[in-house]
Design a protein around this nucleic acid. Sequence first.
DNA 1: CTGTTAGCGCCTTCAT
DNA 2: ATGAAGGCGCTAACAG
Lengths: 342, 342
Amino acid sequence: MNEKTTIYDIAKRLNITAATVSRALNNSPKIKKSTRELVQETADLMNYKQNKLALALKSGRSNNIGIIVPRVDNNFFGTVIRGIEEELYPHGYHVIISQTHDDPKRENENLYALIDAQVDGILMSVTDVTDQNYDAFQNVLQKNVPLIFFDRTRHIDGVSSVTINDFKGGYLTTKHLINEGCRHIAHFSRDQSLDIFKNRFLGYKQALLDSGIPFKEEYVIPIKSSLESGKDAVDILLQLETPPDAIFSSSDFAALGAIQELKERNINIPNDFCVAGFSNEPFTKFMELSITSVDQSPLEMGKMAAKVFLEQISKTETIKIEKKVVLAPELHIRKSSTRTIF
Amino acid sequence: MNEKTTIYDIAKRLNITAATVSRALNNSPKIKKSTRELVQETADLMNYKQNKLALALKSGRSNNIGIIVPRVDNNFFGTVIRGIEEELYPHGYHVIISQTHDDPKRENENLYALIDAQVDGILMSVTDVTDQNYDAFQNVLQKNVPLIFFDRTRHIDGVSSVTINDFKGGYLTTKHLINEGCRHIAHFSRDQSLDIFKNRFLGYKQALLDSGIPFKEEYVIPIKSSLESGKDAVDILLQLETPPDAIFSSSDFAALGAIQELKERNINIPNDFCVAGFSNEPFTKFMELSITSVDQSPLEMGKMAAKVFLEQISKTETIKIEKKVVLAPELHIRKSSTRTIF
DNA sequence: CTGTTAGCGCCTTCAT
DNA sequence: ATGAAGGCGCTAACAG
């Protein structure tokens, strides 16, 4: 019983043919009840397990979907993956994950590797280098494999996407800071070639405009998502002729770094300086001085991406639907930007 | 060029046989250089991609490995998965993940589903209900699929494991608290049926013993890994006749909850009360009052688990090696338990 | 209701 | 150096 048993083994044992066994196991309507039961029993007895690989080869569907993310050890992506897995699990899909570490070369390799592995779909967040791998993306589409972007997207025809309204996220946050009385609001921005970061910036800009506050180029600091980067940015900002009195950061980590640096300089938060981040990382609400941040609904984003995939796969292959789902951002106002403290 | 091209398509185009194409593509030594190049060229031209499924069916190896964890949206497991993926990527393995949410039923299903999917190995952290799914585990072993536990293990013959020395982690932490002058040290413990939690507890107990401090049963509080649970536990402890002056928590989240509750009651941390956690969650070092915690080297744990798998797979099938790798815990001493503050 | 046959895409003896 | 044939495990069309 060590060897894997196949339907042929069962057939031989029962002096019937493999086709019959297959039909019995698949509950084909036109099979005698007695044989169905007999087959089922001996299958159990022989510890038979269907080889999904053979099934996949035959059917052309592997029941695997591929996920590509910059990294998996990160709350946001981890939670999206969780959402995808939970949504797809009941449908019998398995989830293959691969990481790019924001290296376009890895993105390229992963794209091809997943296609080679015959995944039934690819759900991904692109790297922050967005001008590459055109051929790899086209290859996916050409193979008729549904491709769905979540969060970080690119403009490619035929690709669906699930994002939050980053513009609104930026707008709401900036408006909130203005409401708290801030008039010199800086912005930590990440690579503008990615829509999510560009839109957060545009939302920020629009909020200033709508409130009659002049936009200053010098208040926009390019950062990476790290504490260090946030500290450095504060360093730059405080040397300006008119230093800001608030920061809207596209990264929670940079926001935290900024807070640490501001405290170091004995600047009172939130009374003299407000800070808000983006992503609603767990630590933002755990801090003694909790950090205002925009929640991106990663769980829902994952579930939605999975749903879009399921929809895509069910349609007739000829119809290429390009669905764009935009979720609402949710601003969580916390101590780091609330000037009225009780 | 929309359809997937197979080696037969290439063969037909070149008026040769599929076998030759296969050999050429696989760099078989006995193939004319000219034909090899010709085949290679037209393969590229026709956008040929090898169907790994067919290969898998033929070879019996899918080049997929399965990972089963309670959940993926969690720093520890996310990082372990990252380590596994990074280690296995260069070897051409893909990583399939599935979550149990600590439901033994899900664990059971996932185990069988991964075997059905013909994974070449399973790397997992078991659920906190450890008295179940015996058949499912045996099924894996019987199918000769390497099974490797990381962090949360069970006692099953033939299964390798990668863990940290939890006993030592508990011991070091407790010793540290004693060194800080604490004499009434409580312990937040999770389900003792899991070795990791039992060992942390035993390390705690041993440290007390070695320091001549009496062990008190009432100081050991069963908790869940949540802020709420930590708060509740503090509530219980402070009602004791002799309340403790320190807590060694098996969970960072419960440790944080405890700290919040203690602060609420105006108890000075660390001067009147020390707290230490376990797992070195990112937030522990971000807090204003940073939290002492034991690092479990999740990245290395993942890489090591992957290495053990690779080793296992390379050996002759008949030899069943049962390897137990134990990594060293690393105590990160921070403000929540450091009484000498500058 | 069940058997026969063929094929999914690939590799691998066995010939030639 | 290449062709022919068979098989990995399963399903589905075609018979009967």
